[in-house]
Design a protein around this nucleic acid. Structure first.
Lengths: 216, 216
DNA sequence: CATTGAATGCTAAATATTTTGCATTTAAGG
DNA sequence: CCTTAAATGCAAAATATTTAGCATTCAATG
């Protein structure tokens, strides 16, 4: 799915520091679907998405994939390997052609020492993501599946420059993003279409009432 | 429920800095159930729990209460008012006799400027909490209600010094913490008891197999 | 020690959601 | 233009979970 989280790291940094940070790391390219790292990997360090999007998730014991989230360009990941000293918590793979800048722990620590700005930016990013995660969990309980779908679509619509609210989403994407079955998503979307909230297409959804009756 | 989150802020600070921080704030006492702040409140600043526990949650449109989490002594809250510039996201109230130290935004900024150590500690706390929140959301999908209950009990058991795994929990607490109905929790607990995993009591649960067949 | 409010136990009906399986539609490629 | 893999639509059965309501047990306290 789309990158939902706001407040990416890179835009929060001054141009100078941003360049310094990027130059301190090693940049690698990944093709669509290519694995960036796996849950359990050691290699502490901060990774920054320069281009593209990265999907995070894990496989349950029965082999089902659980998508935890998607981050877009400018965002970082792997903070937990630095600050919580834990191995990578999720499998990560590229959603399109993607460039990742990896900064080793040693390099990162030197950078932070040198530019306190980095810590501040990280605090903003992480706080935003924490509260988004909490809100996501709350919504799971407070909102119906239909409402959660509408909320997701509205966010998506608000996030990127899509013409006329034509969103390039597959129903499967919605199912993964929200942790619902495809069948349930399909049924909910059908109801929403009947209510005139949106119009379904092949690989796309046209959002009619951006502000439906949903409180974001 | 109990404080689940690890890596509280205060223990991560050196004694000096910890004292400086606490002295920079205004400490208030709260009785059980007393409201500390409400969702939407302005007042940016960092709040630190010196004594007791604080429960966070919101009310849905239909009046149902959703408990988002509980934080214990040493933890901080209100980061989002500083770093994300948002109003308080949750209603907060004291779970027992509680002492909260409030540090104004101005004071906090001065402190951070003076002791970079504070930023680092905050990064550790926030990262830990972010990944706990993500894991919580994942568990919602990957684990059955029974497994989530066992996981919660094991964590609780591991967190505090309870004799022989005798946990002072009400079934209602579990229901709130996990977002399940009391009936469902009761039924799941009964099954677990039949399997010999635990023993139910009045206002308490005795955990028999701490490591059940659950992968934490 | 009797009373009482809180906590638990239990049941049945209603709702939400997943699983399975197959049919149909769509866009892309040969 | 035909073929094909992916995406969607749909239906039925199985599960999971909530809601509502009431009975019972427990412990605090007067």
């Amino acid at each position: 799915m789309e990158p939902i989280a706001n407040q990416a790291l890179l835009p929060l940094l001054s141009e100078d520091v941003r360049n310094t940070v990027i130059n301190a790391g090693v940049t690698k390219r990944f093709q669509t679907e290519q694995v960036i790292h796996q849950r359990g990997d050691g290699m502490p360090g901060l990774s920054i998405i320069l281009v593209g999007r990265v999907r995070f998730g894990i496989y349950t014991q029965r082999g089902a994939y659980i998508q935890t989230g998607v981050l877009g360009a400018g965002h970082c990941f792997g903070e937990a390997t630095l600050f919580a000293k834990t191995p990578r918590a999720y499998d990560a793979d590229a959603l399109g052609e993607t460039e990742i800048c990896d900064i080793s722990q040693a390099r990162f620590e030197a950078l932070v020492e040198q530019s306190p700005e980095i810590s501040k930016a990280l605090l903003v990013t992480l706080t935003t993501r924490l509260y988004e995660a909490l809100e996501f969990a709350d919504d799971l309980r407070a909102l119906s599946a239909e409402d959660r779908i509408v909320k997701l679509l509205i966010r998506l619509s608000a996030s990127g420059g899509f013409d006329d609210g034509v969103l390039p989403v597959r129903q499967t994407d919605i199912a993964y993003a929200l942790g619902l079955s495809r069948v349930h998503v399909g049924a909910a979307l059908k109801k929403l279409q009947e209510r005139g909230v949106l119009k379904l297409g092949y690989r796309e959804i046209v959002l009619r009432a951006r502000d439906a009756n949903i409180r974001l």
